[in-house]
Simulated assay, not measured.
Amino acid sequence: MEALNESIDLNTVAEITLSYRPKVSLSQRPKVDCSRQVYEVLLRFWNQDSLEYVEQFQVMLLSRGNRVLGISTVSTGGTAGTVVDAKVVFAAALKANASSIVLSHNHPSGNLLPSEQDKRLTRRLVEIGRALDLPVLDHIILGREGYYSFADEGEL
């Protein structure tokens, strides 16, 4: 950076404040130990009116003991896809001081198999998670009648 001779007015610099205010104690939150439990929590949380209508991407934030800290909706798209910004995925996790995350999205078509785009996105987010020491434990594709787990299928 080049040195400037003009002074900087600190009143023009925004202060950033991060906070996380849980309303429920950690012991009262659901604990997830397998993909089936993750699916059940996600399915209860998901807006049932949009499950078979538009694609949404959500991230489940977990404590070190796999208690659900929260679920954050990252994006909502159309009938055939949604845009996922990695910064938004990990901003929520970092703000909640999560120890790990589970990625999730629905396929309005009901087809639970991942597309090549789903696989590429998953690999990219897993790589970013490693760099941040914030592991991605799974990526669940869900529908009303079941789910697909990247972890169960050995794709993580």
Rank of each mutant, 00 (worst) to 15 (best):
L4P: 01
N5D: 14
N5M: 10
N5H: 14
E6N: 08
E6A: 08
S7Q: 13
S7T: 11
D9N: 12
D9S: 14
D9L: 10
N11L: 15
T12A: 10
V13S: 02
V13I: 12
A14F: 14
E15I: 12
I16F: 15
S19M: 08
Y20V: 11
Y20C: 14
R21C: 15
K23Q: 13
K23I: 12
V24W: 05
S25C: 06
S25P: 13
L26A: 08
L26S: 08
Q28D: 05
Q28T: 04
Q28E: 15
Q28N: 13
R29I: 01
R29K: 08
R29C: 05
R29Q: 08
P30R: 05
K31E: 14
V32E: 10
D33E: 12
C34S: 09
R36C: 04
Q37I: 01
V38F: 02
V38E: 03
V38Y: 03
V38T: 13
E40Q: 14
E40W: 07
L42G: 09
L42H: 04
L42P: 06
L42Y: 08
F45I: 13
W46P: 02
W46Y: 11
N47L: 05
D49W: 06
L51K: 09
E52T: 07
Y53P: 01
Y53C: 10
V54A: 04
V54D: 01
V54G: 00
V54W: 03
E55P: 01
E55F: 04
F57M: 02
F57V: 00
Q58M: 06
V59K: 07
V59D: 00
M60T: 01
L62N: 03
S63V: 00
S63T: 03
G65D: 11
V68Y: 03
L69T: 07
G70P: 04
S72I: 10
T73K: 15
V74N: 02
T76M: 13
T76N: 08
T76I: 09
G77V: 11
G77R: 14
G77A: 11
G78H: 13
T79V: 07
A80K: 09
V83E: 12
V83K: 11
V84G: 01
V84Y: 04
V84N: 03
A86R: 14
A86C: 07
A86V: 02
A86F: 10
K87W: 09
V88S: 13
V88Y: 04
V89P: 00
A91T: 06
A91P: 00
A92C: 13
A93V: 02
A93R: 01
K95Y: 10
K95T: 15
A96V: 14
A96Q: 07
A96G: 04
N97R: 15
